Computed example of a mutant assay.
Amino acid sequence: MKPAVMVSNLLNQEGLVALMGGEVVALRVPNFYPEDICIQVAARMRRSDMYGNYVNAPEIARVGQAFFESVASARLRRIYYARAVEWIREMRLFCEPYLSPIDKLRLVLDEIWPSGSRLGTLQGKKMFVGLARFFGAGVGAEPHQDVLAWDAPGVEEAESVEGQLAANIYLMMPQGGGDLLIWPMTLSREEYERAGISGSYGVHGSMLAHDPVRISPRTGELILFNSNLVHAVEKARQGERVTWSCFVASQGVDHTLMMWS
């Protein structure tokens, strides 16, 4: 049976519980943010001094810095922690005078989750939340998994995470390509390394046992999915794919959700 994708006009606790429990592979919330503002914000971000490329995935452009990049060196990790709150404030300016989609997501999650939500911290240090990513023509993301414990080995807060969701708000979609692909499977660290592409963060899609679920996002839509599942971004064929994204970690309904990028 093909894994289910839930569509809801509102982000609510029931949808999050279904997603975290594996009842659905993804949760789609159409029109989470106004389309016309999405396009304006994407244009502002592209002109930002913060605009650059991933250190460990240089074909992908981004505004802000991903925690995933900080695994490359101790220096990058120090910069990440030192500038996390500053980057959050700078990202917020792109949307003035409107509420940013990431701030809206933070507020909604705090309202609907029994124990609320908070900005992520590791070892007493605040994390950045709200990374914007740009996939130009011919650029995508290889099949991969995002697991906080892999990026922060030996850190108690990371290793205690029970469920990790990826949240993407789509500011712009290309005329062709750019689909989200999700394989209903999780690889162990050993399996991931065996299937790994040399010199890349990703794995060979040909070595995956299942066919992926394909989702064609729309501008202004919020999509959440389990980031521990193998997932990829299809290459954009014409135009640009721009997302504003973060992770949401759960340790159960009695614990506060943690958010970071």
Rank of each mutant, 00 (worst) to 15 (best):
S206P: 02
V24W: 05
V85L: 10
E59P: 03
G140I: 02
L19G: 03
R92C: 03
G140L: 07
F128K: 11
L16F: 03
M207G: 10
G163D: 10
P30Q: 09
V230Q: 11
M259P: 03
S73P: 08
Y81L: 13
P101F: 04
V17P: 00
S48V: 02
V85F: 06
R89C: 01
L131F: 12
R75I: 06
V24I: 15
A26S: 07
H210D: 11
D49N: 13
V129Q: 10
A236S: 14
K104D: 01
V233C: 10
T243V: 14
P174C: 02
G196Q: 15
W244K: 01
P97H: 04
Y80V: 05
L122P: 04
D179C: 08
S100H: 05
V55M: 14
L229V: 04
R214D: 08
Q40L: 09
S227F: 07
R46Y: 08
A57G: 09
S245R: 08
N12I: 01
A166S: 14
I37K: 12
G220L: 01
Y170K: 04
V63C: 11
G239I: 00
G205W: 14
F67Y: 15
W113Q: 03
V248D: 02
E190K: 13
H231W: 03
M259W: 06
S160V: 06
R194W: 11
L119H: 06
M1T: 11
S100C: 04
I37L: 15
A158P: 11
L10S: 10
H231Q: 05
V71I: 13
G252F: 01
N56Q: 11
D146R: 10
M259V: 01
H210E: 14
A249C: 15
K126C: 06
G205T: 08
Y201D: 10
K235L: 01
D211I: 00
G220C: 02
A236G: 08
E111G: 00
Y192P: 01
H210S: 12
N53P: 03
I182R: 07
A149G: 10
W244S: 04
A141E: 13
G239M: 00
